[in-house]
Design a binder for these strands. Structure first.
Length: 588
RNA sequence: GGGCCCCUAGCUCAAUGGGCAGAGCAGGAGACUUUUAAUCUCUUGGUUGUGGGUUCGAGUCCCACGGGGCCUACCA
């Protein structure tokens, strides 16, 4: 045989360790296998494998959209790990039309509806366009997560004529395109009306749809032309194609917004774009895409992937990339989320609270078709615990399984190496509860944590986790679960102390040093009731002393944090400092 | 109309190309001069929605049904 079969080449290039060698397998492994197999179909050779993503910068790129980026990223990393040339190509659909003015944006922006996202000004005036305004923060977040990708702007590509050849090709084959689109369009079955009102509405809409009569389209039909120019006069896509000359490639149009009538030459003037369902398969063929994910909404029958798959074959003579559909990402515990806009959390928001590898891990550990929630509430603590425990497991080579594999995928990338994690790992729970009472002082937290058995040299040893614990505590822990230290002494309570209480407080304050340490403070706090009963600090407590301790602690909590309970007293004392304790325990 | 996902302990969820059903919380017992949504040790808890099928073996694969959720139809 002159040529090896696809199968043989795929195996040769894939080089995945064979079954039984103990190397764990997960969805990323399989997706990478598919992409490699795909790349070998047809073209042969050792050309670079392309993992693609695409996103429209029409608004904040939220954590659901992040799956679009991370899925091909993880697959590309896996392919790279096998020593095969690969790139992650990301297309910004910034040549798409601006569709609606979101809440919070001046109403005047409705003027820009129909213009490319790259041509709409930034209402916040900090970037050169609407599109850039939303691309920039995502770029920063991805960099923090070690995601490196080759970015392409659809605006630039179209304007530069990079797709012109394919555009003309599509236009020449517009009948085939319409045939395919129409086939999927007619899938619509007569919906059953639930009541009379609906039946009427239904009759109307059905009547409307029958009107264009595209079914028998022919070359003469311009209503479904696959290419649409932006109006040269007003920049909007509100144009109707009135004529097209196949020989000269002159396209005539009128704009319904500004009334302009003009002619654009498709071959030379680059003023428009293919409609979405044609644009996607066109890019697969131009960029030689081997793998690209898509949201579930693109995967349903009659939707863009299904249609694109047929178009790419029949019109562009290429095969659709291997594909995974990803499910949606939900959110919880974010009532107070101060997201950049719209209240949907973005990657930047998540990175305020989660270490970058943990955010990656959320996406790596689930198969794309699995939906999951990102919880900014109490779940965060558990997530960190789980992550830390997985990290300990990953340190043992004997325990390498799919979970550890996900940990590895989350922890390091080719571009960024091992992503930042704390040199000294302190449980998030502890950092957060200490942060709760220290009024945002990293130094103080560091000191208390160090004296609490987590030795470290400096605040930097606790980063990047410490910052996240502080942010999370401040922003996401509900007020009723936080400890609020009194501003002023409780004069009322201090005015009606019992004799015992009075003696305890006096004893405590007499012996409270200016500089506190954990052990001394612990001994003192527990010792005060002993002293009051004539015992020494280190004497074993009697039953009476134990009861006194209970009452004494409660008194301290009431006076310090206006509650019956609170953080461990030594911690609280250290957090507040001697002076403040003294102030709050002394009648004004 | 079509498609996808989900149903696992009281609760929230794991189990990623079939291989002994697991965590956290809650519950129970014990330890602690220790009070925090304390901590540590031990522990109860299951016919994996229902009914079939394939298999030596099914939470996992196939078919049907019930319940819940999402997507899609015209446009990008």
């Amino acid at each position: 045989m002159a040529h090896p079969t696809c199968e043989e080449r795929a195996v040769a290039r894939g080089n995945r360790s064979e079954k039984g060698s103990g190397d764990p397998v997960d969805w990323v492994t399989r997706a990478a296998d598919d992409a490699i197999r795909h790349a070998d179909l047809g073209e042969g050779g050792d050309r670079m494998i392309t993992c693609a993503s695409g996103a429209s910068p029409s608004g904040p790129i939220h954590l659901g959209n992040l799956r679009e980026f991370l899925t091909p990223h993880l697959v590309a990393e896996e392919i790279r790990r096998r020593g095969i040339p690969v790139r992650h190509l990301h297309s910004w659909d910034d040549f798409d039309r601006f569709r609606k003015v979101p809440a919070g944006v001046p109403a005047e922006w409705s003027e820009h509806i129909g213009r490319p996202l790259s041509a709409v000004p930034d209402p916040w005036a900090c970037h050169e366009s609407w599109a850039e305004h939303f691309k920039a923060p995502l770029r920063a977040a991805l960099a923090e997560m070690g995601v490196e990708m080759e970015e392409v702007s659809q605006t630039e590509r179209y304007r530069a004529g990079a797709y012109t050849e394919q555009v003309l090709h599509a236009i020449r084959h517009r009948d085939t395109i319409e045939e395919v689109l129409a086939k999927h369009r007619t899938k619509k079955a007569a919906p059953v009306a639930e009541n009379e009102q609906e039946a009427e509405a239904l009759a109307d809409s059905v009547a409307d749809e029958d009107e264009p009569e595209v079914g028998a389209a022919g070359a003469g039909s311009l209503a479904r032309f696959p290419y649409k120019p932006y109006c040269r006069e007003c920049g909007r896509d509100t144009v109707d194609v009135t004529a097209y000359d196949d020989d000269t490639t002159d396209l005539s149009y009128t704009c319904s917004s500004c009334g302009f009538s003009g002619v654009t030459n498709v071959a030379t003037q680059h003023e428009g774009k293919l409609v979405w369902k044609v644009d996607w398969p066109m890019r697969w063929s131009v960029e030689q895409v081997d793998f690209e994910p898509g949201g579930l909404d693109h995967s349903t029958p009659g939707s863009s992937y299904t249609v694109g798959k047929e178009l790419v074959k029949r019109v562009f003579d290429f095969r659709a990339p291997s594909y995974v559909a990803y499910a949606f990402v939900g959110f919880a515990g974010m009532q107070k989320m101060s997201s950049s806009a719209g209240g949907v959390p973005t990657a930047a928001d998540a990175l305020q609270v989660l270490e970058a590898p943990i955010l990656r891990w959320l996406y790596a550990r689930r198969q794309p078709k699995q939906a999951f929630n990102i919880d900014f509430g109490a779940e965060v603590v558990r997530l960190y615990d789980e992550w830390d425990s997985l990290g300990r497991k990953a340190a043992d080579p004997a325990k390498r399984d799919a979970q550890v594999l996900a940990f590895e995928r989350a922890s390091a990338t080719a571009a960024a190496g091992t992503l930042p994690t704390p040199r000294v790992v302190v449980p998030f729970r502890l950092l957060s509860s200490v942060a709760d009472v220290t009024a945002g002082s990293a130094e103080l937290i560091s000191g208390i944590v160090a004296r609490g058995g987590h030795a470290h040299d400096s605040v930097a040893d606790l980063q990047p986790r410490l910052d996240r614990a502080m942010t999370w505590t401040a922003e996401f822990v509900p007020a009723e679960e936080r400890t609020t230290v009194r501003e002023q002494p409780d004069a009322d309570r201090l005015g009606r102390l019992t004799e015992d209480e009075q003696r305890w407080l006096t004893t405590l304050l007499d012996r409270l040093p200016a500089e506190l340490d954990v052990d001394g403070t612990t001994a003192l706090v527990y010792g005060v009731p002993k002293l009051a009963r004539g015992l020494a600090l280190d004497d074993a407590p009697t039953d009476e002393v134990k009861a006194d301790q209970k009452a004494f602690f409660r008194l301290l909590y009431e006076l310090l944090v206006d509650a019956e309970r609170g953080p461990r007293l030594p911690t609280l004392f250290l957090a507040l400092g001697s002076e403040r304790i003294r102030h709050l325990l002394t009648a004004p």
